[in-house]
């Protein structure tokens, strides 16, 4: 397995390293399902979850992944405390260096913050979401979920729908999916889809019917409430009417198309409960399950390159 000191983004990975990570994650997924969850490959290692933004699910997923590998896991929530005291990100880095942690999982509201930390700390830095830049473990878990359900991770048409502009998940997914040879469609109102992408294999649509036609996967993105107050879209009801995924719109995609969502969902805004809870079409629960397995693979791989 190629060495991977930090995981700052999908940018910088190559198809072989993605496949390796997914294969390892797949094996952890099987072990997790068999109930043999406890491993000891990270025994004696310290994992710090450093979250400058609240995120219960991602933090819990990393925490569980770390514990299942035997690591000592510490959660540091600095969403408000230190920042208001005027401590800079680099002060925090110095503190963490003094604590000799091995793995540092970082979420921050500013793009590039994990990259800045990676320059200053000895630990392996894993980006758990930075601003509107990247969320690489989400893209990896999406990829694993797709591969398990479609039997491959190439030649598929994936429609990513909604607030692409403000989504780090979308950026990481686009990079990973196009790198592996899939076709990506970005679907949403013009104000939520960036005009400049500059990546081959990506098409932009402003109409769900056209955008979903022939899609193998329909990936919905969460719509933040701020998008309405900041005037990017007029109302939730208008948004749901034209861009919310319900049975009627899902019918535009392939008959066996599957639905994904990074969570947490806004039911009735970007996705209808009827679709979200349809076990035959929705992979949303499996995404959460694969999240733990993928994070185990990432932690394991980074820890090995850092030893």
């Amino acid at each position: 397995m190629a060495s991977l000191k930090h995981l700052l983004g999908i940018e910088g990975l190559n198809p072989a390293s993605v496949t390796n990570l997914l294969d390892l994650a797949e094996s952890y997924a099987l072990l997790n399902r068999s109930g043999k969850t406890q491993r000891d490959s990270l025994r004696g290692r310290t994992l710090i979850n450093l979250f400058f933004e609240d995120s219960t699910r991602t933090r819990t997923s990393f925490e569980l992944a770390g514990r299942r590998l035997g690591a000592d896991v510490v959660n540091m929530s600095v969403a408000t405390s230190s920042v208001t005291k005027g401590e800079t990100l680099l002060d925090t880095a110095a503190t963490l260096n003094a604590m000799n942690c091995d793995l540092l999982v970082v979420r921050h509201k500013s793009s590039g913050a994990p990259a800045l930390l990676a320059q200053k700390v000895g630990a392996s830095v894993i980006n758990a979401g930075d601003g509107t830049h990247e969320h690489p473990t989400q893209a990896l878990l999406d990829a694993l979920t797709i591969r398990r359900n479609k039997g491959r991770l190439s030649g598929l048409t994936v429609a990513i729908c909604g607030d692409v502009l403000n989504s780090r998940v979308a950026r990481s997914d686009i990079l990973l999916l196009t790198m592996m040879g899939n076709f990506v469609r970005l679907v949403g109102p013009p104000t939520l889809v960036p005009g400049a992408i500059g990546v081959n294999g990506v098409e932009i649509f402003h109409d769900m019917e056209e955008g979903l036609k022939g899609a193998d996967i329909v990936m919905m993105l969460r719509l933040q409430k701020e998008r309405m107050t900041s005037g990017l879209i007029p109302s939730a009801r208008e948004y749901f009417t034209f861009y919310g995924l319900d049975r009627k719109k899902l019918a535009y995609a392939k008959p066996d198309a599957m639905v994904m969502h990074p969570g947490p969902m806004n039911r009735g805004v970007e996705i209808d409960s009827e679709v979200a809870d349809d076990a035959a079409r929705s992979l949303i629960r499996e995404q959460v399950e694969m999240g733990v397995a993928v994070r185990m693979a990432v932690l394991d791989t980074c820890a090995r390159s850092n030893s």
Binding site: G131, T132, H133, R168, A196, I197
Partner: peptide, 11 residues
């Protein structure tokens, strides 16, 4: 400045 670079860097 708006463009592919700012989009990908998430700025």
């Amino acid at each position: 400045t708006a463009g592919a670079r700012a989009t990908w860097m998430g700025l």
